[in-house]
Design a protein around this nucleic acid. Structure first.
Length: 272
DNA sequence: GAAGGCCTGGAA
DNA sequence: TTCCAGGCCTTC
């Protein structure tokens, strides 16, 4: 479940190592995660070098020479790892990129295969569906605009936070943590939440994401840094994955509910 | 606006 | 053996 902070960490790490590297071989193990024609994908990547790496929502974007863009979405269990050739690739390593002047290779693993890899040309419709329809990044939203937008929505606040078209980058972990920090119950209808509290919510989202980025993201089951190390922000989660344990704020047991097929953890005392 | 489906590994 | 986790999409 890599969300904005996890992707942000990977992007900085990739940006420190990959720019300038020339792709010398492309190995596609499992075509399912590849959303571009396989032959064209491999042929086009060969000999191109990586110019810069950036993030949009939960997407990783690599700008290559000749106006090519290589996109990664990690889905739930996707991993990007940089290293020498491991003893065995395993059935979940779907893509391996080798480079001309280094022994380091870039591996894309994804056991659950919700991830995607796409190659596009600059100016083209970026991702099959995703990128173009993404809402603003959390930090790009002005607090006032964010509040006014939510005041017009009737949906449950938790669902709205997960909606990437509204705001890009939040997933289940950081939506739950932000709602807890702002003291809002996940089932509250957005339009009925006081403006002051919605404004607090925007602040909470920015704070939580910032802290998570600084702690290297949350390693719940699969997320790893580019070098294979774990993030540490899971040690600071107050509600996510803590159902039945005490709320750090008030000692009330954290509860869990199901909302649109997604679980939500919250404190019934602090969040109303 | 809400629910079902895809997918696999690990827990119950 | 069944169920659950949740990224996003499609369908109701």
């Amino acid at each position: 479940m890599p969300e904005l902070p996890e992707v942000e960490n990977l992007v900085s790490e990739l940006g420190r190592t990959l720019p300038g590297c020339v792709i010398s071989s492309v190995k596609v193990q499992n075509g399912e995660i590849l959303k571009s024609p396989r032959a064209w994908f491999s042929k086009s990547l060969l000999g191109k070098s990586i110019v810069r790496i950036s993030r949009r929502g939960k997407f990783i974007r690599m700008d290559l020479t000749d106006g090519l863009l290589l996109w990664f979405h990690l889905g739930m269990t996707g991993q990007l790892l940089l290293g020498g050739l491991p003893p065995k690739l395993g059935r979940h390593t779907h893509l391996v990129l080798s480079f001309r002047d280094t022994k380091q290779r870039l591996y894309f693993r994804d056991p659950r295969r919700f991830g995607q890899v796409v190659l596009t040309r600059e100016g083209e419709e970026a991702f099959p569906s995703g990128v173009k329809r993404l809402g603003p990044e959390p930090k790009e939203w002005g607090t006032e605009e964010f509040v006014s937008c939510l005041k017009k929505r009737r949906g449950r606040i938790k669902n709205l936070l997960l909606n990437q078209r509204l705001m890009a980058g939040l997933g289940n972990i950081y939506a739950d943590e932000s709602l807890h920090r702002a003291g809002i119950h996940p089932l509250r209808r957005a339009e009925r939440i006081p403006r002051k509290r919605l404004s607090r919510l925007h602040q909470a989202i920015c704070e939580v994401l910032g802290e998570a980025i600084r702690w290297g993201g949350s390693s719940i089951d699969d997320y790893l840094h580019l070098n294979g190390e774990k993030g540490r922000f899971q040690e600071f989660h107050k509600v996510y994955g803590r159902a039945g344990k005490d709320c750090p704020g008030c000692g009330t047991p954290i509860q869990r509910l199901k909302l649109s097929g997604r679980s939500s953890a919250f404190c019934p005392h602090c969040q109303r």
